[in-house]
């Protein structure tokens, strides 16, 4: 049986550590040393969360507090005294007496190499990338002084997927952290994308490696909301402003009682788009919600499109929002 929909944040995510401590006082705790600082956390807490809770930064790509335990990108590796290798802090449980170094020369060397490897298989087109300014890859390269790809060789060369009118998918920019896959697969009747192929050829793809439009994608944008790089971006805001030119204002969707969170993207005080931020309790985010927010807040929203007979066609707002029957009655 497949897992049911669950949207409970990890009890070990750093925002909830203090809460956990208070609530679950009976839980045993462990004390470890991170960068010389003694840290006490509930047993079972990851080294990553222990560090973040103590105000020590560790970079992550694939770690998602809602779907922990992946451990694939390896950017969060740390040195632990006595360990044979460098474990990923996001999947390593803190233990009593553990001595952790999060920015030792060896750790920094490893992170730099991992970033160089990512860049070597990436277009490195930050000048025109929509994500520039809020891209984790860019941020960490800045932090670790990685100027560009150090390795030359084969690069992914996959076509840009613009088949879906809402989501632009550029798998050449994908670092295969899998957050989109885990997010999409958390909703049983979606699970539209998954890892396909293997090794260097691995990519995130819908069934039969089709475009998003051909797949069963419902454009809920859960995937876009978690993508740490420019692989998944909103088509509606493309080219309308750089990250540093816009402000974001959080709004709560009112279509249903769940109240998913959206961000209004504003430039010069004007809303230029609405993007998904986080799903509400027990809800998976939906296109209708986001379109509704667009219509409400955006003075110049793009025309809504819906998939009919396997093709996206422009529809009226009432149809897009499922209000046709109501409008009929109000006439």
């Amino acid at each position: 049986m497949r897992k049911l929909c669950k949207f409970v944040p990890s009890v070990f995510s750093h925002q909830t550590i203090t809460l956990t401590l208070k609530e679950e006082i009976q839980l045993s705790t462990v004390t470890l040393t991170i960068n010389g600082q003694e840290v006490t956390v509930p047993a079972g807490t990851t080294v990553l969360d222990a560090a973040l809770g103590a105000g020590i930064f560790i970079p992550t790509f694939c770690h998602d507090p809602n779907f922990p335990g992946y451990g694939g990108c390896r950017i969060c590796v740390v040195e632990i005294k006595g360990a044979r290798n460098m474990p990923a802090s996001c999947v390593t449980a803190a233990a009593n007496g553990m001595v952790v170094e999060t920015e030792s020369p060896a750790v920094v060397e490893t992170r730099k190499t991992i970033l160089e490897l990512m860049l070597a298989n990436h277009p490195v087109d930050c000048l025109t990338c929509e994500k520039s300014g809020e891209c984790k890859l860019q941020d960490f390269c800045f932090r670790y002084d990685v100027k560009g790809p150090k390795f030359v060789g084969e690069k992914k060369d996959q076509p840009l997927d613009t088949s879906n009118p809402y989501i632009t998918r550029d798998t050449n920019k994908c670092i295969l952290c899998g957050r989109c896959v885990r997010s999409c697969n958390d909703v049983e009747d979606r699970s539209v994308i998954n890892f396909a192929y293997r090794g260097f050829k691995t990519k995130v793809a819908p069934a039969m490696d089709s475009g998003l439009a051909e797949s069963a994608c419902v454009s809920c944008s859960r995937c876009v909301a978690v993508c740490p790089v420019g692989a998944l971006t909103y088509t509606s805001t493309a080219g309308k402003g750089r990250v540093w030119e816009v402000e974001k204002e959080q709004v709560t969707c009112g279509w249903c009682e769940s109240g998913c969170l959206f961000d209004l993207v504003k430039k010069d005080g004007k809303v230029i788009g609405v993007v998904a931020k986080a799903s509400g309790e027990g809800r998976p985010l939906c296109l209708k919600g986001r379109l509704g927010m667009e219509l409400r807040y955006n003075d110049q929203p793009l025309k809504p499109m819906l998939k009919k007979d396997d093709e996206y066609v422009e529809v009226s707002w009432t149809e897009a929002l499922g209000l046709d029957d109501i409008m009929e009655k109000l006439k």
Partner: peptide
């Protein structure tokens, strides 16, 4: 064939994308 994979995915109640992911692995 794609249709067979789709049938398998429906009958085994597994996402089509997951079936494709396994096939290509």
């Amino acid at each position: 064939p794609a249709e067979v994979l789709e049938t398998i995915s429906q009958e085994l109640k597994l996402p089509f994308s997951e079936v494709f992911g396994v096939v290509t692995f």
